[in-house]
Write a protein that binds this DNA or RNA. Structure first.
Lengths: 203, 203, 203, 203
DNA sequence: AAGTAAACGAGACGGTACGTCCTGTCTTCTT
DNA sequence: AAGAAGACAGGACGTACCGTCTCGTTTACTT
C-alpha cells in the first residue's frame, strides 16, 4: 500500500534542465553586475538567460527567491565557524570574512535587492529570514563558545551581540555611508566583545 | 539693492496648492496604514488624495521623495537632544524615543518603504542619506558631549557608537525579528556605552 | 524547391487569438453604434472588447487601422460589378448599393471616422487610399465597359466620372446635408452619364 | 514661440485685445504651415501665439472655431460671383478660383482639419455647415442665373450641380489623389454643365 | 521501437502602473 | 476687465512588465 506519500508513478517526462537553472542564476548575477543597474525584471532575466518565462515561474516562486538562490550559489563556500582560540580572534575572523563578502559590489547589490524585496513581499521576507537565521546561528555559536570558555560573563546577552554585529553590517550595506573594510570588521569585533563583557549588561 | 539675482518678475500664475500637498502626504500615510498593505502606487496615491497625477509629478521627483516627505511631516516633532546629566540616561532617552517611533506600524512601514526604494533609486538614496545624517548628528552630539564630560575615553570611536545604535535599530525594523520595545532600547544604550568605554578600542 | 525563403522554424509560441481580434472589431462597431457617440478611445475599445491594451497595439498600428478593418470586415459582401445590360442600369445599381451602405448610421460613422483620422495620420491616409482605390476600380470598370459598348464617347474621361460619383457620395456623407437615398443615387447615376456623354469633354 | 506677434502687445484691459486675436489666428496658420505637421493643440496655439490659454477659451468655443476663423480671415478676399456672359465661363472662373484656394498647402491643411473636427464635434460641424452654405449659395446663384438665361433646362437640378462641384472639390482635397489644378477646374465646369444640360435629368 | 508526459523556448493573452501630454477650469498678479 | 502665466483635476496615450496560457519541440522514462 503505497497510497500514502509516494505518487503511483515516480516520474514521467523530461527532467529539470540544470543548465536552464544555472543560466537563470548566472543571468541574475550578470544583470546585477551591470554598471548601469537595470531594474532586474523577470522578463529581463528570462531573455538574458535565454530561457522561457514559464521555466522560471515553474521553479521559483518569486524574483526574490531567484536572487536569494543566486546568492546562495555564489556563497557556497560557507563562512566556517572559525577557531582561533580566543573569542576576539574568532569574531575578527568571522566578521572579516563576512565584510569581505559584502564588499564585492555584485554581492552587495544582491543583498540589497533581496532586503528591498523582502519589505514588500512576505514570501521573500520569509526566505530571507531563514537565510539570515542560518548566519546568525553561526555567530551565536561563536559567542556562546566564548562565553562557555569564560571570556564573557555568564549572563551576557549573546543575541544582542549578534544584532549589533549584523545590524552594523546591514546598515553599512544598505546605506553605503561606510566601506566594509577589514579594519571596520576588527573594530566591530572589539565593540561586540566590549558590549557583552561589560558588567552592566542586565537591568 | 537686490538687482543682481532676483528675476524681474518673481512669480506669475497660480501658486502651489498647499491643500493638494497635504492631501498627497495624508494619502500616503493612510495607504501605508491599511492592514492589507496595498503596493503604494503613484496612481493609487493620486486617487486616494483626489489629486491629478500630474500634480504629483510636478512637485515630487519620485515616489520615495513623497514617502520621505510624509515621514518628515509626521516626525516634525523632532527628537530633541536630551540632557539627563549622564550619558547613559541621555542614550536611553534618545533611543527609547527613536524606538517608540519605529514601533508605530505605519511609521515602520514608511521607513521600510523608503529604505527599499533607496536601494533602487539613487535619488531616493541621496535624500534618505540626508535624512539619516540629521538623525545621526543628534546621536553623535550626545556621545561627544558624554566624552567631553569624561564618561568616555578620549579616543572613543563616536561614529562606531552611532553605527551600532542605528544599525541595530534599522536591522530590527527591516527584519522584524525583534520588537522595538523600551527594554530593547535600554539594553542597546548600555551596549553602546560599554562598546565605547572599553579600553581595547585601538589596534 | 522552396528551401530558400522558408525559415527553419516558421513559428514559435502562442498564435494570435482570432477571438480577440473579432472582439476588438465588434467593440469598435458597437461603440460607434452607441447613440451618445463616445469619442472612441483605445482604452475604451480595449475595455469594451475585454482585451488587453497591448494586444491591440500588437496587431494594429493605429486606431484608424482598426476602424478600417472593422469596416472591411462588415463590408465583406463586396459590391459586385453589376451587369444590367446598360451603363445607366449598371451605374444605378452600383450607386444604389453604395448609398445603401452609407445610409446605415454606424457604417457612416465608421467612414467619417476613418476620413477624419486620415487627415492627421499619414498611415491611415495610406490605408484609406488603398481601400478607396479598390472601390474606384470597380466603378471605373463599369464605366470603361460602357464606353467599350459605345455608350460613351471614346475620349470620355472615366476618372472624372469616378470622382463625381464618389465625390458626391463622400460629400453627402461628411456634411450630412443631403440623405443617401436611392433616388439620390439614381439622379447621380444619370448625372455621371450625362457628364461623360457630353461632346465638350476635351479642351 | 511668440515670434508671430509683435513684442509689445499691451494688455488693454476691459476691451478685447485685437492683437491677441490676431496672434492666435496667425499662430494657427503658422502651425498648420509647419512641414512636420504638429497635432495642433490648444496649448500649442496658446504658446505659439504668446497668449494665455484662458484668453483663447474666452473668445472661441472650440478649436475648430479658431481654425475656421483663421480660414475666414485669410479668405477675406471673397470669391466674387463672376459674370463672364456665359454659364460655362462663370463656372470655370468660379471653380478655378476655388481650386486655386485649395491648392495652397496651408489652406488645404486648414480645410482638412476643419472637416476632420466636424466629424467629431457637432458644434464645429454646425459652423462648417454655415461656412459651406455661404459658398454653395454663390455657386447656386451662378447656376440659377445660367438657367434663367436659358443655358440650362428649366427643370435642371441646380443643387445636384452644386453637390457635384463641391463634392469633387472636397473629395480631391481630403483624399489628395488628384491635384487641384486649373485644368481640373475647367474639366469639372464642363462636366457640371453637361450633367445639368442633359435631357435625362428628371425621372 | 512506440507511446506518453513533462520540461523547454517562444510568444500572445488580460491586466496594471507608469510617466507624459493635453483638456478645460481656476487662481494670481499685471496692465 | 482683460490678459499672461501657470497650477489644478481629470483622462487617454503608448510602453513595460506581470503572471498565465498556448504552441510545437525535445527529452526521458515506460511499455
Amino acid at each position: 500500500m503505497k497510497d500514502v506519500a509516494g505518487p503511483a508513478r515516480p516520474h514521467t517526462g523530461r527532467r529539470r534542465n540544470e543548465q536552464a537553472r544555472q543560466a537563470v542564476l548566472d543571468a541574475v548575477w550578470t544583470l546585477l553586475s551591470r554598471p548601469d543597474r537595470p531594474p532586474l525584471t523577470m522578463e529581463g532575466i528570462a531573455v538574458a538567460a535565454g530561457v522561457g518565462r514559464q521555466t522560471i515561474y515553474r521553479w521559483w516562486p518569486s524574483k526574490g527567491a531567484i536572487v536569494l538562490e543566486t546568492l546562495a550559489e555564489r556563497a557556497r563556500t560557507d563562512v566556517p565557524q572559525p577557531d582561533t582560540g580566543t573569542l576576539l580572534g574568532d569574531l575578527e575572523t568571522f566578521l572579516s570574512a563576512t565584510f569581505a563578502r559584502g564588499a564585492d559590489p555584485t554581492a552587495a547589490a544582491l543583498l540589497r535587492h533581496i532586503m528591498a524585496e523582502a519589505q514588500q513581499d512576505p514570501a521573500v521576507a520569509d526566505t530571507l529570514h531563514r537565510f539570515t537565521s542560518a548566519r546568525r546561528d553561526v555567530l551565536r555559536a561563536i559567542l556562546a563558545q566564548g562565553r562557555d570558555r569564560g571570556e564573557l560573563p555568564t549572563g551576557a546577552d549573546v543575541d544582542l551581540g549578534v544584532d549589533i554585529a549584523y545590524g552594523v553590517y546591514w546598515y553599512a550595506l544598505l546605506l553605503g555611508h561606510v566601506p566594509l573594510t577589514s579594519e571596520a570588521a576588527h573594530a566591530l569585533a572589539r565593540a561586540v566583545l566590549a558590549a557583552l563583557t561589560a558588567p552592566v549588561s542586565s537591568p
